[in-house]
Design a protein around this nucleic acid. Sequence first.
DNA 1: AATGAATGAGCATTCATTCAT
DNA 2: CATGAATGAATGCTCATTCAT
Lengths: 201, 201, 201, 201
Amino acid sequence: MSPKAVDKKTKRQMIMRAALEVFAEQGTEATKMIDIARRAGVGKGTLYEYFPSKEELIAGSMLMMMDELDARMVERLYPLVDPLDKIRAFIEETFSFFVEKEDRVKILADFYAAGIPRPDSKPLIADIDKRYVELMEWLAVIIDEGVERKSFRPVDSKQTASILLATIDGLLFQAMLGLMPPDREKVLENVISLFLDGIKA
Amino acid sequence: MSPKAVDKKTKRQMIMRAALEVFAEQGTEATKMIDIARRAGVGKGTLYEYFPSKEELIAGSMLMMMDELDARMVERLYPLVDPLDKIRAFIEETFSFFVEKEDRVKILADFYAAGIPRPDSKPLIADIDKRYVELMEWLAVIIDEGVERKSFRPVDSKQTASILLATIDGLLFQAMLGLMPPDREKVLENVISLFLDGIKA
Amino acid sequence: MSPKAVDKKTKRQMIMRAALEVFAEQGTEATKMIDIARRAGVGKGTLYEYFPSKEELIAGSMLMMMDELDARMVERLYPLVDPLDKIRAFIEETFSFFVEKEDRVKILADFYAAGIPRPDSKPLIADIDKRYVELMEWLAVIIDEGVERKSFRPVDSKQTASILLATIDGLLFQAMLGLMPPDREKVLENVISLFLDGIKA
Amino acid sequence: MSPKAVDKKTKRQMIMRAALEVFAEQGTEATKMIDIARRAGVGKGTLYEYFPSKEELIAGSMLMMMDELDARMVERLYPLVDPLDKIRAFIEETFSFFVEKEDRVKILADFYAAGIPRPDSKPLIADIDKRYVELMEWLAVIIDEGVERKSFRPVDSKQTASILLATIDGLLFQAMLGLMPPDREKVLENVISLFLDGIKA
DNA sequence: AATGAATGAGCATTCATTCAT
DNA sequence: CATGAATGAATGCTCATTCAT
């Protein structure tokens, strides 16, 4: 990797980071290229040196965000052994990720919208569903471990993973709407407890 | 209510229904007023006789959809007594609603996006969060009933409702991305079972 | 043809006429859509009600011009019998057409450029070459008549037509550059005389 | 002239030659500076070391082409004595020049367009009309010689030159549109014969 | 009331030109 | 000298909205 290449890559990332900020504040649609350029501190034309179109810039930014979350997740879960700890950490980490950076959660609606398959045009982000499935399979492995260790009931691990992921997504959407209660700690505990013990008396 | 007034209201609804179809297919942003007009079989100008702007037409359509879901939910749950039956019916009904009509689920991303509070502009749909909260409180009441009847553990009913709603939303989002497994019946059973019994061995 | 249709067609022509004026003054490339709109006394968007793109507006205008010349030519030559008269009238009419309307001749370069076949993109005006060939064949018929009547030497009528047309075009290009002598009458006479008698002593 | 200076001049010409190639393929307007730079094998900035603007590069290239044609013409006609031979050679040489180099003829439309006087902006190539006039006068001298030697009728030599030049230009334009018949030899013969003997029986 | 032709504000994108290296 | 990354002025085109009929 020549120093040039690093610079180019770094600048690309800087632009995507600026874009994500503005996307979060205004939504991808309402965001104009000039807004991103100004936020990134570059000229409008410069954006097109790094991305062929607004669409690609959106897709790139979103994928970068996914990669960052993935990386953090791997790093966080790597040292853990107990499946229960892993799941707890998974939920915690996801929440932290989307809340720590101002408004990052507000990207989520655009993010999902970008993955919707439409009849006459490919989805904005091609493999968002594959990424999602990978995540689910990763969780499923953890759940399988738990089942093997007799920590969990013998559940359908894939569907259980799907449901857990759904719950996390759903809660993030509530946060997006401003509905999350201030004590996230307690919410987390309740999710864990509900997920583990159910609601039945 | 004069017959004229009824006609007006009916036509308004017809337009909103046409709009929802197109929104589902293309997303609200990509949908042009002319698309809606054509689908509704009216002229472009006519839309503006019934809605002052595209924004209001979007908001109106979404609220109509919410009202329809509400009405169906009330009708479906009204005869039920057992809190468990009510919750099961709630989940079932929500899924049916979003799946029975071709692609209705694809409106969801736009729907949530419409409710995001933005710094410099009010959310497209003003009270989406209140509606959401009402729904949650409704569910909370059901859960409270269950707790009272000792069917459920003594949980924080509001948070539990929030979590259940989140799970349902999340699963619908997965469906939106085309990830739902074909056997919704089984998914439903798993959700219910997980929600009731948790995962713990 | 309903009155609406007439209006639509008429307005389309009005726009093309305005466009031709501006094209002549500035060249097609330097002409902005807003220039044409202003000249036509309509809004910018209106142009797009009648033409899907600038390219199509250019092509349409040029074709209209060709049609006008064709129509005039037919009308002018129709009453004539003597091939020599026809050829003289053909040359006269072409010159008048391009000179009578201020600067119409200045469209010619763009006009021909529009017909150039390019490797990776179809020519702007698809059948300009066919139109040109038709014109040549038309002239060839006249020349054949002249040969038959023994007014002309037995020449290759197609090539002779090609050459005559070339001469006319070439003179128009000179006019375009501002090189035409003021006494067009005399030029015409010289062309006719040269074409008929050659230069040889 | 220092060796450096020669290099500079040589490089300038190399750039102009590259430019002409691209102009022929795409037209001057569609040609981007980067296209020329790549074809010339230099950086985009380098072009501006040799030409202050795209406009000047176009003008320079066109003038270079004219100079090349002039030089060839002088060399070709210099040994000839008979005015008829000169004229034949003139026509032949012009045709060869524009056909031998792939697509050179396709520059012609842009070339003429560049010479059109526009109301609010000087023509791209300032003296193209003067060059054209010089060429005509040169031809006129040849014709005068022919008249003097009684080879030609006593014609208006300037107008005759204009007409001959027009014919050549017009035929080149036909070639530009792809209309030239494959047997250029025969076309040439016909032009000569028509020009000399006319068409009259 | 219903319509759709007309409109122009607004935006993504292009590309000639500059200038730091 | 040579370069190409950076720039922003310039423009084709879209589409929500208006309003005369």
